[in-house]
Design a protein around this nucleic acid. Structure first.
Length: 556
RNA sequence: AGGGGUGUGGCCAAGCGGUAAGGCACAAGACUUUGACUCUUGCAUUCGUAGGUUCAAAUCCUGCCACCCCUGCCA
């Protein structure tokens, strides 16, 4: 087995194992518990497991860690598979921890026979007391030294459902005085009468994670079991189980650190709460950093992968990656793939006062960033068009070179116009802008060489689609925003932005054959994707992300 | 004497005894029929802290400090 150039400390460890002969191949597993939707934090784990196996020419299995029927469901099983496929990873096989229950059980019996496990009758409360504290050692259970026969009989009784849940459990006999609490005779089997989403009620006893996980790894042929940092001090227990299982394949657990993203709410529990409280519309709400939400927003899987690789892996447990970093990778990909489209999101009417006659068809072909794009885009210039409200200012401010009375600006792909005036309503809101156009400056002609500072986009409503755009604000309140003052909702110390709702607005986009699979850059507005809910007569776009805007309005 | 981890610029992050890579963010400038993109430049005399070893330390040693995880019959 050849080693590969390591890109992180995990691969360094793998190379060690390959070099000293502990393993001669690499097999990993992706072990989600089907108790929630995958989010961007899980993406790193997925990339690590599938990606590492891939790099070493090994395989990675998808294995549902479904040892707790109380929290799991088929809905989550399906969503996980869907998300992994969307990310572009391929599992070798799909397994369920429940497939190994018989083998787990037999190994538990073997442990009992060897005097390494016993049935304990302590109640959960008592068990907790006997466990000791962080600073004090635990006390041995009075049931610790039962005979092998009695243990065997009791365990069999548990399996047959003779005792109520919580009345007894099977514990590994390790060391009640261990400074590592996980080693103080951990519970490895508990009684649970519940409908399991996959195996129904066929088992009355369920192995705990600490017991089944290492076993399943070994059984499946996993060489490297890559998991989160919270299992670091479970490793001695993992090794204990592996060692005492009698299994030949001895898997190795390697921990990595979690991914935290600033200004986001992650964690299955938190996301569920947002969904249940109705703060978001579902697990695929585009404001959520779930894989489903990100996908609906129009983020591409390769952006996510590039982002994860770029953040690297260290063991710094306090690392919080800035959200701007993710944004950068989203834009980077989209910039190469998005089709440029003229659109006006917040329209205000603009009248070309010296334009006469029929609307004029304008062809442009200046979208060179799009691969293989030979199509001509037809625009219709005319007397009445719409432009973006934010491209006009009643009172110009320094360094602003878009529309204001007296200023010239180019309408992208068309003519240079000069703003001559505007109307406003009683509230001071601009209702109409007036301008004249210079007919010698049409794009593509000699006269077009004249330079003006600003270029704005525009749409002729008579020849455009009226569409719906979903815009939204970040779910998490900015640190220093005023909205934080009167926040009502709070999830685990993270302040929810009370203004965060998905807003549907009526906008105009130029006529094109829109394709569900394509990304669009609404020129000067950001990147958009068609929403799955879109219909033939109502196009719904989701804003993926805004463009960078280096023009800053001065703060007064 | 609880155990296990981690500390490099605003945010990630290389570095593994030879005199602080890179990216994001930010700032300035160039280019531009998207103020996008692209390009150019700037941005840690210092690596949690205090000592020690050395010709030489972010890298080795010692003490201290800070933060994260662990007291589910969850994973």
């Amino acid at each position: 087995m050849k080693t590969v150039e390591p890109i992180n400390f995990i691969e360094e460890k793998i190379n060690e194992d390959l070099k000293n002969g502990r393993f001669n191949c690499v097999q990993t597993r992706h072990p989600p518990e089907p108790s929630g939707y995958l989010h961007i934090g899980h993406v790193r784990n997925i990339i690590l497991n599938y990606g590492t196996a891939e790099r070493y020419g090994g395989v990675c299995n998808l294995r549902y860690d479904d040892t707790n029927p109380l929290k799991e469901s088929t809905e989550f099983v399906n969503s996980i598979q869907n998300d992994v496929m969307w990310l572009g990873y391929h599992w070798h096989e799909i397994h369920y921890a429940t497939e190994y229950f018989q083998q787990n059980y037999e190994i538990a019996v073997k442990l009992i026979k060897e005097g390494k496990a016993y049935v304990c009758d302590l109640s959960p409360e008592e068990l907790s007391k006997y466990r000791g504290t962080l600073t004090e050692p635990g006390k041995e259970s009075p049931y610790r030294n039962r005979s092998v026969e009695e243990n065997l009989e009791l365990f069999e009784g548990m399996k047959q459902g003779k005792y109520p849940a919580g009345s007894r459990c099977l514990r590994a006999k390790i060391d009640m005085a261990s400074p590592n609490i996980n080693m103080r005779d951990p519970v490895i089997y508990r009684i649970q009468y519940a409908e399991h989403h996959r195996i129904g009620r066929s088992w009355n006893i369920y192995p705990s994670y600490d017991f089944s996980h290492p076993l399943d790894d070994c059984l499946e042929g996993v060489t490297h079991s890559i998991c989160g940092p919270e299992f670091e001090d479970h490793r001695p227990l993992y090794d204990w189980v592996v060692e005492n299982s009698g299994l030949k394949n001895k898997s190795r657990q390697i921990e990595y650190t979690n991914l935290y993203l600033s200004g986001t709410i992650l964690g299955k529990r938190n996301i569920k709460k947002l969904v249940n409280d109705g703060i978001v519309s579902g697990f695929d709400d585009p404001r959520l950093y779930t894989v489903a939400g990100l996908r609906r927003r129009g983020v591409l899987p390769e952006s996510l992968k590039n982002f994860v690789y770029a953040t690297g892996l260290s063991k710094v447990n306090t690392a919080v990656v800035d959200r701007a970093f993710l944004d950068y990778y989203i834009r980077e990909t989209l910039n190469q793939k998005a089709r440029r489209v003229m659109a006006v999101l917040d329209p205000v009417k603009l009248v070309i006062t010296n334009y006469e006659g029929e609307d004029e068809e304008i062809f442009t072909e200046d979208f060179p960033q799009i691969e293989g794009n030979t199509e001509k885009h037809a625009h219709y210039f005319g007397r009445e068009i719409v432009v973006e409200r934010s491209d006009f200012l009643k009172e110009p401010i320094p360094k602003f070179f878009r529309l204001f009375v007296g200023n010239e600006v180019r309408l992208k792909g068309a003519y240079i116009i000069k703003c001559t005036g505007f109307d406003e309503d009683e509230n001071g809101k601009v209702t109409t802008i007036y301008a004249t156009y210079d007919k010698d400056t049409k794009s593509g002609t000699e006269g077009a060489n004249r330079k003006v500072k600003g270029t704005i986009h525009w749409v002729n409503p008579k020849h455009a689609y009226k569409v719906t755009c979903r815009l939204f604000e970040n779910l998490v309140a900015e640190e220093d925003s005023e909205s934080v003052e009167k926040n009502e909702a709070e999830t685990d110390g993270v302040r929810i932005n009370p203004n965060s709702k998905t807003e549907l607005t009526e906008c105009y986009v130029e006529k094109l054959n829109y394709n569900m699979d394509e990304r669009y850059q609404f020129v000067r507005n950001g990147y958009f994707t068609l929403d799955p809910d879109t219909t033939a007569d109502n196009l719904v776009f989701n804003r993926t992300i805004t463009l960078k805007d280096s023009f800053k309005m001065p703060t007064l």
